[in-house]
């Protein structure tokens, strides 16, 4: 059964309750997913908190990492949304750190990947788009709708362009969440499949063990790739968040 479990690439995404909990007919149990969400924020918070504890003028390695992340996200937001956008810095920084640390934790064997579930990434995406819409209307009132009416478009094309703009805006939360979810899901399935090959091939004796070197090498290479993807997807998520927030700040483009 253990061997069979190892080659089941979907098993790693299963959610099982640790502390069953029901509120108002909904199952809100504390699951393995919740556990890893807690682990994600505890690890990220602890790292950021401890590494900056000395407040050194000349930073050590860990403090440098924290400062780099902070300035990296800060510059990203300033470039995309200007000085005004800096009021969203805590949001973008939290999103970046949360997604990054969740992705990285997921790379450890037997660990659950929080971001491999569409509902998690979709909730984060809705948080971003919700912030954009609420702030946009609060700041510009109905002027925010100018977002859907680009300048310099001839009148007869306007209905078509506006329709396209609205569709593209509505599809943003979907594309934002599916991009992250699909990348993490596909990466982990691929890793699991190749690792499974190693186990399955080893079962065929000496030849199998010799042959299992190939999928093993592949799994090693994929692990490196997944490390890159983990960072890249966190970066992409943060960059797109910055660009959408820029729309909320400056709707007429």
């Amino acid at each position: 059964m253990a061997a069979a479990d190892k080659v089941d690439p979907i098993h790693q995404f299963q959610i099982h309750p640790i502390i069953p909990l029901h509120i108002g007919g909904y199952d809100v149990s504390f699951t393995n997913s919740s556990l890893f969400m807690v682990a994600t924020i505890v690890l990220a918070s602890a790292f950021l908190y401890m590494s900056t504890a000395s407040r050194a003028l000349i930073p050590g390695r860990l403090q440098s990492v924290s400062e780099m992340a902070y300035e990296f996200v800060g510059n990203m937001l300033r470039d995309a949304a200007g000085k005004q956008g800096m009021q969203f810095f805590p949001l973008v920084f939290s999103l970046f750190m949360f997604v990054l640390v969740a992705n990285l934790i997921g790379l450890f064997p037997y660990f659950f990947t929080v971001t491999s579930h569409i509902i998690v990434t979709f909730t984060l995406a809705i948080l971003v788009i919700g912030t954009v819409v609420v702030y946009g209307f609060a700041k510009h009132g109905f002027g925010f709708l100018k977002l859907f009416v680009p300048h310099g478009v001839p009148g007869y094309l306007l209905p078509l362009v506006v329709a396209i703009e609205i569709i593209s805006f509505v599809s943003r939360p979907v594309s934002l969440s599916v991009r992250l979810f699909a990348n993490m899901l596909a990466g982990h399935i691929t890793l699991k499949v190749f690792s499974g090959f190693v186990v399955s091939l080893s079962a065929f004796g000496a030849v199998g063990i010799a042959g299992s070197v190939l999928p093993l090498a592949m799994a090693v290479a994929l692990s490196a790739l997944e490390l890159l993807v983990a960072f890249l997807q966190a970066y992409v998520f943060a960059v797109l968040t910055c660009m959408y927030l820029n729309d909320a700040l400056h709707p007429s483009h």
């Binding site: 959610i15 309750p17 909990l21 909904y26 199952d27 809100v28 149990s29 504390f30 699951t31 997913s33 919740s34 969400m37 807690v38 994600t40 924020i41 990220a44 918070s45 950021l48 908190y49 900056t52 407040r55 924290s66 400062e67 902070y70 810095f89 805590p90 949001l91 920084f93 939290s94 750190m97 949360f98 929080v114 579930h117 509902i119 998690v120 909730t123 984060l124 948080l127």
Partner: peptide, 28 residues
């Protein structure tokens, strides 16, 4: 599994956001 994930995500991310905004980011 959606209600549980949404609830716990909101709780954990909310705490994370508050901690970063109140403690970590002013310090950094």
């Amino acid at each position: 599994t959606f209600p549980s994930q949404i609830l716990w995500l909101v709780i954990t991310f909310g705490l994370f956001y508050l901690f970063l905004k109140r403690v970590v980011m002013p310090r950094l």
